Computed example of a mutant assay.
Amino acid sequence: MARTPRLTRSPARELRLGVKLRVIYADTDQMGVVYHGTYARYLEAARVEFMRDAGQTYADVEAAGYALPLTDLQISYLSPARYDDILSVMVGVVEIGYARLILGYHVLVAPGDRKGLGQPLTIAFAETCHCCIARADGRPARFPGPLRAALANLAPEGDD
């Protein structure tokens, strides 16, 4: 069985702040750290804001007749996030193709966002893959022009 390599850095070359959020008690498990499944919500929150900052919202995409379902998710947890931490979730485009979008993430706690923390603490690196589909029939579809242009502007050179 092939093992997926552990992410030791963000797959995206250029990252932007997607969202800053405070860990609430409900996000933690019995050990007092953020439950692993919660990170998918954090990534989604960052992705939504990243797209909004690029000039496109999920509501715009859906109104145009498209959807961007998640097809793959990879997370490498490097350090635990704890209750009351303020997490910065950085996002960047790894690749954009005909109907596929790959985003990279860096989840961290910045100095001052955890008591006694003097340097940035990497919590996790992640990657999500999304397929652009037509909502009418659920089939893969080419990214609509405005969304493609907005995301292509954030992609590394040569990724279109």
Rank of each mutant, 00 (worst) to 15 (best):
A26S: 15
T28I: 09
T28W: 07
D29T: 08
D29H: 13
M31Q: 15
G32V: 11
V33E: 09
V33P: 13
V34F: 00
H36Y: 03
T38P: 14
T38Y: 14
Y39W: 10
Y39G: 01
R41I: 11
R41G: 14
R41A: 13
R41W: 01
Y42S: 06
L43S: 11
L43H: 04
E44M: 11
A46R: 09
V48E: 13
V48C: 10
E49G: 07
E49T: 12
D53I: 08
A54P: 05
A59K: 01
V61L: 15
V61D: 06
A63E: 15
A64N: 10
G65Q: 04
Y66W: 05
A67V: 02
L68Q: 03
L68D: 03
P69E: 09
D72C: 00
L73R: 06
L73E: 02
S76H: 10
S76W: 12
S76M: 07
Y77V: 00
Y77T: 06
L78F: 09
S79N: 08
S79E: 09
S79A: 12
P80N: 07
P80E: 06
A81T: 05
R82Q: 14
R82T: 10
Y83N: 10
D84I: 01
D84R: 00
D84K: 03
D85W: 02
I86W: 09
I86P: 03
V89F: 05
V89K: 05
V89D: 07
M90Q: 11
V91Y: 11
G92L: 02
V94T: 11
E95D: 13
I96A: 09
G97T: 00
Y98K: 12
A99N: 13
I102P: 02
I102E: 13
G104D: 12
G104Y: 14
Y105H: 15
H106M: 15
V109R: 03
V109C: 10
A110T: 08
P111A: 09
P111H: 08
G112A: 01
G112Y: 02
K115H: 11
G116H: 07
L117D: 03
Q119E: 03
L121R: 12
L121F: 01
L121H: 04
L121T: 04
F125T: 11
E127Y: 12
T128Y: 05
C129Y: 00
C129A: 06
H130S: 00
H130D: 00
C131K: 02
C132M: 08
I133E: 08
R135M: 13
A136K: 13
A136G: 08
G138I: 02
A141D: 00
